[in-house]
Design a protein around this nucleic acid. Sequence first.
DNA 1: CTGAAAGCGCTTACAG
DNA 2: CTGAAAGCGCTTACAG
Lengths: 352, 352
Amino acid sequence: MDGAKRGAGRATTIVDIARAAGVSKSTVSLVLKESPLVKPATRERIMRAIDQLGYVYNRSAASLRTARSSFVGMVISDLMNPFFTELAVGIEDGLHNMGFVPILANTNEDVGRQTKVLQSLREHGVAGIIMSPARGTDVWSLAETLPRSLPMVLTMRRVDGSTLPYIGPDNRTGSREAVTHLINLGHRSIAFFGGYGTMTTQRERISGYRDALIAAGLPLRDELIFESMPTRAGGAESLAAALASPLKPTAAFCYNDIVAMGATRALGLRGIRVGIDFAVIGFDDIVEAEHNAPPLTTVNADTRIMGTRAARSLLGLIDGADPESMSYTGTTRLVVRESCGGHRRETFKETA
Amino acid sequence: MDGAKRGAGRATTIVDIARAAGVSKSTVSLVLKESPLVKPATRERIMRAIDQLGYVYNRSAASLRTARSSFVGMVISDLMNPFFTELAVGIEDGLHNMGFVPILANTNEDVGRQTKVLQSLREHGVAGIIMSPARGTDVWSLAETLPRSLPMVLTMRRVDGSTLPYIGPDNRTGSREAVTHLINLGHRSIAFFGGYGTMTTQRERISGYRDALIAAGLPLRDELIFESMPTRAGGAESLAAALASPLKPTAAFCYNDIVAMGATRALGLRGIRVGIDFAVIGFDDIVEAEHNAPPLTTVNADTRIMGTRAARSLLGLIDGADPESMSYTGTTRLVVRESCGGHRRETFKETA
DNA sequence: CTGAAAGCGCTTACAG
DNA sequence: CTGAAAGCGCTTACAG
């Protein structure tokens, strides 16, 4: 059902080249790992044989022997979401540079599939796993499918109660700054669009939203929070609900960019001018944000970099570093474009 | 530099569970592959031991022995492009369903990196490779890095002179239909935007463009072809050049959707109404196309399905099917939205 | 500086 | 129906 012969007829191995070079396979192995122990002359002879016979190193055999794997599982919750694509590109790049190769799994937000995938990854002997957990992942199921000994880091989404290292942006601060910007622009009734309270990320972003309101002495009203799927359709839905609301919000801070894009488009369809009649801000700064109509004001989270940071943390874990020290919270930056109305210069901030 | 111990202290193996169940490891191996040879009672005993000891199958060891791998290389030329993301999702899904796992490599259109990646994939013993070749890939470099015996299929982009199976959409027919639609709408000076003649895909799409013009008795003018990078920026650039052209095109058929989106936005920035003053059509029908402002008329190529077809073809190759029969040309469908002006019903077509 | 030997965790004939 | 033996392609002490 699965598989193919390595080469056509018997791939050439270390002993073939040993024979050709007139040495033992131990010596060949030594030159493969560039050991200084072997005399230059023999080294040359062996290298030549390798070229001539077209030898290709069998990393799996080596892994079996050393119990060291160069595979890393990269489990992405929704690869179709441009945000996660950017994350995946960052991870792939980081892993590649460190000599690891990623086995990709797209769980599509399905916890069942995630469980299967995690098991498969173990069977394939990955050295570790980087995962953006599917919605609904809980500590118990994680603990059940994974031994404590398998290095793993979580990205972009936390799992309540988990002590695994987490790599993600400073959601709370980023959100606070975005909402503060809206307040400074004169908005008093500001809605929050998208996501559900079951997502840790949404809760963090709402905390930031509240921080800003409180700091400005504005009331906190749960009726201004319009939950929906974190998609374009969700954004359109939240927008419709908000327009029907008695609180008459004049601006919305969105769970993420695609929600904001959905809202922005729904606004346009109703002839409401984005950035003039209604302000919207997103989160993530995916590449499309800048090409939205109108260009989206959003919180840049340096997603790609975050991906390579996640790769680095996993490597740290694999090398035995203390898990506590492998978490990383990325700095965030408000990128002001047109969807919020006020054309100000970018604001920078540093994280604690 | 790379790697970690499999488990913490000596992972449990087939012999551990053999000992626990009081049988030989051969018997354990038999139950693992669900052989009917072993008596239900012993089977039960063994299963229980597996559960209790928390045994996890070591697929790599099995691969070494059987010379059968469940890894497949998935080499993507530009994962940041939503089009290729959709393709990757389709491939991942197809592979997953067939019991294979994809090793992801994003070459970022870099032929040098592609060569390295291909070599690494060989060392990791993949059963085959699915690749969307980086721009500039030629048969020679391919032949040099890969033995004929390694199953491989090309997707979305051909490599001149290569006889490897190719899975992609019917570019020529899809393009012809799109341009015919423009002609039916009354356009007489129709430009082609984006891509370069060095890309086989662009050449195929231009052939379709020409087919339509010829069929309508319209002149073929090279000055109406505005090449540029296949990106949003490229689209904007082609648009600028077109507007400055003495041929005054009133419509453009674009190399792909992101080129069309770039053109569309550049048009908007100049106050030229898309779909009214100037018509544009894209190619691919990425998910964003429908959310563009205005929604993009484009050629749907069923990218995801194409990805799973590619997976299926590779599997065929691995199972020894005739390469000639493993190519697949996907059917194409014009999706009329607003960017082209004429709001007609969708047109369907079947491929030869 | 190089070789002989054992072993990583499986599978696969081959006996019984 | 089950066990003993050999072997997949490497690496790693251990001698010499």
